[in-house]
Simulated scan of single mutants.
Amino acid sequence: MIGKRAVNGSVLVVVVALLVVLTVLGGLLSVLTTTGARTGADQSQSVQAFYHAESGLEWAVWEMRRQEPDDDDEYATACGSLEGHEDPDGRYRITVLENQGGNCRLQFIGAVPGIDNPQAQRRLRVTINPRAVEGRDPNVVQDPDNWANACSGANRSCNDDGSLTFSSNSGKDQLNRSGAADDLVDGDAFTGEDEVFLFLRFREGEGDPADFGLENVPENGDRMWSSDGTGDLPDGYNAGASLGNGFTPNQLNDSNNLRFIMEWDGDQITLEASCIGTRAGCEGGTDDPADQWGEE
C-alpha cells in the first residue's frame, strides 16, 4: 500500500507540474498574440496617419494654385492663408513654419483617428516650390529666349499648349543657346554640390527617345546622356538623365554655347515638359532632397 501511494503521489506531482507548465505557456502565448496584434495595429495606424499628412500636402498645393499668386507678395499671402487649416474630418492640421524670401515651409500632422484624439501621428515638413504653386508645366527646353532656333525651322514647332514637336527625317535635332539671354534655370535651383538632372516628359503614342542631353555644360565638357540610369523619375516625367555636379545655376545660365541634343525613333516626337535641377526640386521642392518630402 505504501508503494502504491508513493506512485500515486508521484503521478500527482507530475500532473500538477504539467498543468503549471501549460498554464505558463498558455499565458505567454496569449501575451505574444496580443502584443503582435497591437504592434500590427500600431503600424497600420502609423501608415494611415502618414497618408493623412500627405493628403494635407496635396490640398495645400491645390489651394495655393487656386489663389493664382503672381509675385512674391501674393505667394506669401497664399502661404499664410494655410496656417491652422484642418481637414474637415480632422485627419490633418497645417502649420506655417516659414513664410519669407519666397519660401513657404509647412508642417503637416496627420493623425488617426483624428487630430483631437490621436492614437497615432505622423509629421511631414515640406518647402513648397513656387514653380509648383504657379501651376505652370515648365518646358525650359522650348523657351525661345534661351534657344535661338527653338520655334523656327520646318523640323520643329512650338505648340500652343507649350509642347515642342521635333520632326526631322533623320530622327535627330538640336537647339543652340542664343547667348546669355533669360535665365535657363532659377538661380536657387541647385548648388555646385548637388547632382543635377534633366527630366523630360514625352507625349505618349509618338516616337521614342533614343538619346538626349545637354552639351557644353560648364565645368563638365562635352557630354551626351542616355535616358537610362536615372533611377525613379519624378511624377510627370517619363525620361531623365544626370548632368552631374560641380556647376552652379549662374554658370549654366551664362553658358553661351550650350546645346540641347535630341535623338528619337519614329516620324516625330513631342516634348511636353522639362526640368533642370535636383530630383527633389523637379518633384516640387523639399527640405532635404535626400529625404524626399522631409518626413519626420
Rank of each mutant, 00 (worst) to 15 (best):
S10G: 15
V14I: 15
A17C: 12
A17K: 08
A17S: 14
V20S: 11
L29K: 05
T33P: 09
T35W: 08
G36M: 12
Q43L: 12
S44A: 11
S44F: 05
V47L: 10
A49C: 04
A53H: 06
S55Q: 09
G56H: 05
A60G: 04
A60D: 05
W62I: 13
E63A: 14
A76R: 07
A78V: 08
D87W: 08
D89V: 14
G90A: 07
I94H: 02
N103K: 14
L106A: 08
F108L: 10
F108M: 08
I109H: 03
I109L: 15
V112H: 01
D116Q: 15
R123G: 02
R125S: 05
V126Q: 03
I128R: 00
N129D: 09
N129G: 06
P130A: 06
R131P: 00
A132F: 01
R136I: 06
N139E: 03
N149V: 02
S152K: 02
G153R: 10
N159Y: 07
D160R: 09
G162D: 06
S168H: 11
K172S: 14
Q174N: 13
N176Q: 14
R177N: 11
R177W: 09
S178L: 09
G187Q: 15
E193C: 04
F199R: 01
G207P: 04
D208E: 10
G213S: 06
G213W: 02
S226W: 08
S227K: 07
S227L: 09
L233P: 01
D235M: 03
G236R: 00
Y237A: 03
N238M: 03
N238P: 01
A241V: 01
L243W: 01
G244I: 06
P249T: 03
N256S: 15
L258C: 04
L258I: 02
F260L: 05
M262W: 05
Q268R: 15
L271S: 00
E272H: 02
G277Q: 00
C282V: 03
G284S: 06
T286S: 15
P289G: 12
A290Q: 15
